[in-house]
Design a protein around this nucleic acid. Structure first.
Length: 228
DNA sequence: CCTAATCTCATCAGGACCATCCTGATGAGCGCATTAGG
């Protein structure tokens, strides 16, 4: 439901990356790697990316989705299919012997400045915007996506934690103003505003459902416990 | 309709300064996350 908005205004906003279509050969390699280790480290993901000629971030997403699907399968059919039995032993030791993570990226103040400006403009940038930013900053697009994820997440947490801190209140007021402008300009999907909008009347999501028809509210949004 | 892409939230962990904070990276998602492209 990527909101239509006005076609002219939101040309590059909120677009998804186009779907990757893996070939059979690529899938064979991925599945084999998954059976060996469903939690590959950065080096392994890089190697796989090279091997099947795709981006490391696509490998990461593939493993995430694969783990999720397997989790479902395992529960729906407890020990029916033994052919993919390998991952049943992956629990404890596998997790302990996890390979190395990607090295932590550190950003310069000017890179951060660019990030923050973009965030104020739109906290949910689409693929085009992210790629443009990545190019501008000189980092991979996947890092841009992670930065926005973390930023949004911490924005929520911060607002919950210090609702009456004066400095942050001022900052939030400024953010609120900018936010409202953007909302009026329809710069990002309406359905997400309820989740993210500064100074939402109630800190509880359930309290603001009245302004949105239930069928536009994602199920998890309705069902999730309120953290207040 | 399958599954890649995306989201939030919780947590781990590296690095800057000296026990703690900030923030990038990663994983789960339980009436088994949701959304949406092909």
């Amino acid at each position: 439901m990527a909101q239509d908005n006005s076609p002219n205004k939101t040309i590059t906003m909120n677009q998804r990356r186009s779907r990757t279509k893996f070939t059979e050969d690529q899938l064979k390699i991925l599945i084999k790697a998954f059976d060996q280790n469903p939690y590959p480290g950065y080096a392994t993901k890089q190697r796989l990316a090279l091997e099947i000629n795709t981006d490391e971030s696509r490998i990461q997403i593939w493993f995430q989705n694969r783990r999720a699907r397997h989790q479902c399968q395992k529960k729906s059919e407890p020990d029916e299919d033994l052919e993919s039995s390998q991952d049943q032993d992956h629990s404890e030791e596998e997790i302990q012997s996890r390979e190395d993570r990607r090295c932590r990226t550190s950003y310069t103040s000017s890179q951060l400045h660019t990030f923050i400006g973009a965030f104020m403009n739109n906290p949910y940038p689409g693929i085009d915007t992210r790629e443009q930013l990545a190019k501008e900053i000189g980092i991979p697009e996947s890092r841009v996506q992670i930065w926005f994820q973390n930023r949004r997440s911490r924005f929520h947490v911060q607002r919950k934690r210090e609702p009456d801190d004066q400095d942050s209140e001022q900052r939030q007021d400024q953010e609120q103003d900018l936010w409202d402008e953007r909302v009026q300009d329809n710069c990002f999907p309406n359905k997400l505003l309820g989740l993210f909008r500064p100074n939402k009347p109630t800190s509880c999501l359930c309290g603001s459902l009245d302004s949105r028809s239930t069928d536009t509210v994602p199920a998890h949004e309705q069902g999730r416990p309120c953290i207040s």
